[in-house]
Design a protein around this nucleic acid. Structure first.
Lengths: 226, 226
DNA sequence: TCGATGTGTCAACAGTTGTTCACTAAAAAT
DNA sequence: ATTTTTAGTGAACAACTGTTGACACATCGA
């Protein structure tokens, strides 16, 4: 279904493609990708990761069930790989946002637009994160929580360097970023649930307003005794 | 496991117990409750609703698999009943909050304390709502979204009558209540994930701070042209 | 060129799944 | 008192599940 350019786990990072891998490594990587894609695709059809079966995944991947074990110990391990990979997408988003710089004017609206587009462009990963962040297997949920927390910390650092809220202590800024992140992930769920030919505009507007409220409050925030 | 006082679906509401039901109706209600409890209990052990099997549920309920069909067409229908029942818990919470009145002094902190206690006291229902609100079956997710939206609307009405934010239009108030509700449901996930003998205090503090930020922002909010 | 490595295949296993049908026995209706 | 209704049982079904072991055969290092 989707042609994916996956970064190799090996030490040498190829410039553009994975051609540097030995022929057998390519083949292995390819079916490994097929398995991962199959899981994501099944989730895209409304299933939760927990309910996916090993055979089901291999069937969609076009591989025999036993092949699965050449790549993962069990579906659980696949899930953790999926967490890792989705986390990379999150970081990629942050990196691109950083590169785009911070237009203070109408910054929230622009960010939400970029975010919305990014969510739709990386539908499967956000579907996985937003869907398995609550419910599902506790250990996968925990892994996602770790990644999201790390993402929040990075976002906090960025905002800190931008010095938008100079009066906030690091802890307060982190707490506010946590609120921002959870609000945006919530928004992702809504965006992904939209019927395919619906406009995301109303949801974006709502998200913009909510973030504006948060940022308004952040500007007024003073750390109190309790 | 848990003795549940379920409200009968019949027209005549008994004062205290369900003794008014015919003997057979009582028995039926009892195993129906056992099935519902079994599903909740399984979820309490870290499973997502989607992954529960019919036989699994009946096994925990102590009933033969075929008995399931006397009460629900399939597990899906059980899920919808679970949504309904959990929604009742949400409304019950709102009702009790209304009854307690609104102490403007330290109102947020008190509300969060009551909320946290309520979440822990109704663990299974909140586990279901917070867990299946994202991911899982689309139709169940949709049903939950409806109930949460309705809950948000009721909360909006309450805040409106309290006139805490007199300058806000109904739409803006609703949008802010949506932010509040999603933040609190997020908090529920965190609280429910706590190891059983951990204090919820840090999470409560964080939730209090986040809500304070939101309310600070809400006080400053002015509806703009765009 | 030859042996080693390892990805993918095939066949088979024991166990579980959802669903059906006919049946029992107790409560309700007559 | 007799008939009807019905919640729960038990056996059986085809289909599916995760996992195993042995095998084919392309790629690799020598």
């Amino acid at each position: 279904m989707s042609v994916r350019s996956r970064q190799p786990s090996g030490p040498e990072i190829p410039a553009s493609e994975e051609e540097v891998l030995p022929a057998r490594g390519q083949r292995k990587q390819r079916t490994r990708d097929a398995l991962i894609d199959a899981a994501l695709q099944l989730m895209n059809e409304g299933r939760s990761f927990n309910s996916l079966g090993l055979r089901e995944i291999t069937r969609v991947a076009g591989v025999v069930p036993t092949s699965f074990y050449r790549h993962f110990r069990d579906t659980h391990e696949l899930g953790l790989v999926l967490v890792e990979e989705s986390a990379l997408t999150l970081r990629r988003m942050l990196r691109e946002a950083r590169r785009a710089g911070a237009p203070v004017k109408d910054m929230i609206r622009r960010s939400v637009q970029v975010y919305s587009a990014f969510v739709l462009a990386n539908r499967l990963h956000f579907l996985f994160i937003a869907g398995e962040r609550t419910g599902g297997s506790p250990v996968i949920r925990g892994a996602i929580r770790n990644e999201v927390d790390q993402f929040t910390a990075e976002l906090t650092q960025d905002l800190r360097h931008l010095a938008i809220f100079p009066q906030l202590t690091p802890d307060s800024l982190q707490m506010i970023c946590g609120l921002v992140v959870s609000t945006m992930l919530n928004g992702a769920t809504d965006i992904l649930d939209l019927p395919p030919d619906d406009s995301a505009q109303p949801l974006e507007d709502n998200l913009v307003h909510q973030l504006r409220v948060i940022f308004l409050g952040a500007q007024l925030w003073r750390d109190e005794i309790s």
